[in-house]
Design a protein around this nucleic acid. Structure first.
Lengths: 228, 228
DNA sequence: TTCATAGTTCGACGTTAACCGAAGCATTCA
DNA sequence: TGAATGCTTCGGTTAACGTCGAACTATGAA
C-alpha cells in the first residue's frame, strides 16, 4: 500500500493557491523577498510568512538572509521541473481563458533561469540538429564542436564546470511539450543573450522580449528545424 | 500575477492522501475498479466515489464502465510523468524509512505500463548506445537498425504505429534520475518480456521480478553501459 | 535615541473538505 | 422474481487549514 515516496505531502504543499502563486513567481529564477512574494500571492505578510515557512521545511524553496530581508528562491532545478510537469497537466485541462500575455509567454519566457517557450525548444532543437549537444541516456552533454561553439558564443565553460550543478540538463516545456536546454549552460546562454542585448526580461512577468537585432541574430545562430 | 496555467488545482487534487494513494496504485498501468481503489486508499466506498469523481473531472484519470464495474486508469502518460516528477521531490526530502520493498522497487518496477528502475534506464541506455533509438529534439525514434531489432524481438511495429499514442517517449525515472523508455514501444517491450517469461509482475506492488533465465537474457540483450 | 521597515508569533474566526452511516439506483446472478 | 454486489447520493459531524488583526522582535536609517 505504501510504496514509493509520499507524494501527497508535496502536492498538498503546492496545492494551495497562495503557495502555488509564490512558486510560480519564483520560476523566473530570481530570488524574491517575503513581502514581494506576499504581494505576488495576494495575501498579507503574516500569512505569507506561514506559507514560506512550510515551503521551506518542505524543501521546495531555499532562503538567504540579507540584512533585514529574506530572499527566497526555488530549492533546486528538480522543483522547477516538477512544477513544469504540473503546468503541463493544468494547461491541458484548462484551455479556457487564453489571456493576452499567454501568446508572449508561449513564445519566449524564462523557466527557472533558462530560456523556455517556442524559442527555447527551437534553440535546443537547433543545437541537437547541428551536433553541438548530444543526449546520451538522459544526460545531455556538449560535443567537442559544441564546446568551441559555446566558447565562441562568449561563455566561460571552465567557470561553469567547476560548479556543482550539472552543466546540461533537459527540461520539458509545458507549452510546447518539447524539451529545452536547462542546467548551468542553459542559464549561461540566457544571461549571455541578455548581455549581448538580444533579449531582455519583462519586469513583472516571465516573458522574454527579443530586440529586433536580437531576433535576427537568434534566428541566424539557432535556425528553426523543420517539423518532421 | 496570473501567468501560465493554474497549478494549484491539479496539485491540490493530488495533494489528498487518499487520492494520491489511488494515483500511485494506478501507476502500474493496470485499470482498477472503484472498490479496489477504495481499499488501496484505505477509505470506504462512498468517499472513494467522491474522490474518483474529482479525479475524473480533473482529467487525471479516465474511466470505462463495464457491467457493474467501473475501471479507472490514469488519463495519459503526462499524468504519470507529472507524478514521477513529484516522486522525485518527495524522495529527495524524505530519505527516511527505506522499506524492504524499496530496493526491489528501485531495481525494476513498472511505471504506468513500461519498465522503470535500474533495469529500465539500463535498457534505454543500451538502446541508445547501440544506435537502436535516437533522441532528436525531445522526440525519441527508432533507427533503421532499431526497427529490425524490435521486429526480431517479437514486436509488431505495424500494429503499434497505427495507434494514436506516440511510439517512443522518454520518461524521467524518480529513483535513478535518468531517462527510460516509455510510449507504446516501451509498453510493448515490457509485455513481450513477460510473454517470453523473462519477467513477471508482483501481484500487489509495482515490483517487476526477473526469472533466472530472464535476467541472463536481459543482460545479453541490453548490456549495461559503463558509467561516464 | 527615535522612527520606519521587514518579518514573525499568537489567537480567533470562518471556510472548506474529508469522512462515514444510511438509503437509493443499477446491474448481475440464481 | 428476489437476492446480492458495485457504486452513488444525501446529511451531518469533525478536523484541518487559510486568513487576518494585533502585538512583538530585529535590522537599518535619521
Amino acid at each position: 500500500m505504501k510504496e514509493g515516496p509520499d507524494i501527497s505531502r508535496v502536492a498538498a504543499l503546492i496545492g494551495d493557491p497562495a503557495r502555488a502563486n509564490m512558486l510560480m513567481a519564483l520560476m523566473n529564477g530570481k530570488a524574491l523577498t517575503a513581502s514581494e512574494l506576499a504581494a505576488e500571492a495576494g495575501v498579507t505578510a503574516q500569512t505569507a510568512s506561514g506559507h514560506l515557512g512550510k515551503l521551506q521545511s518542505g524543501d521546495l524553496v531555499q532562503v538567504r538572509k540579507q540584512g533585514r530581508h529574506k530572499y527566497f528562491a526555488l530549492a533546486n532545478a528538480d522543483v522547477a521541473a516538477a512544477l513544469e510537469g504540473l503546468m503541463g497537466l493544468a494547461a491541458g485541462q484548462l484551455r479556457t481563458r487564453t489571456g493576452p500575455k499567454d501568446a508572449a509567454l508561449r513564445h519566449a519566457r524564462v523557466c527557472y533561469n533558462h530560456l523556455a517557450g517556442q524559442k527555447g525548444v527551437q534553440m535546443y532543437a537547433s543545437l541537437l540538429r547541428r551536433g553541438l549537444v548530444r543526449e546520451d541516456r538522459d544526460e545531455v552533454a556538449l560535443t567537442p564542436d559544441g564546446i568551441s561553439f559555446a566558447e565562441e558564443f562568449g561563455i566561460d565553460l571552465d567557470g561553469l564546470t567547476s560548479s556543482r550543478a550539472p552543466l546540461c540538463r533537459s527540461c520539458l516545456d509545458w507549452s510546447e511539450r518539447r524539451t529545452h536546454l536547462a542546467g548551468s549552460l542553459g542559464r549561461a546562454m540566457l544571461t549571455r543573450m541578455e548581455t549581448r542585448g538580444w533579449v531582455r526580461r519583462d519586469a513583472d512577468s516571465r516573458v522574454i522580449l527579443f530586440s529586433r537585432d536580437g531576433s535576427a541574430a537568434f534566428e541566424a545562430a539557432f535556425p528553426a528545424v523543420m517539423e518532421p
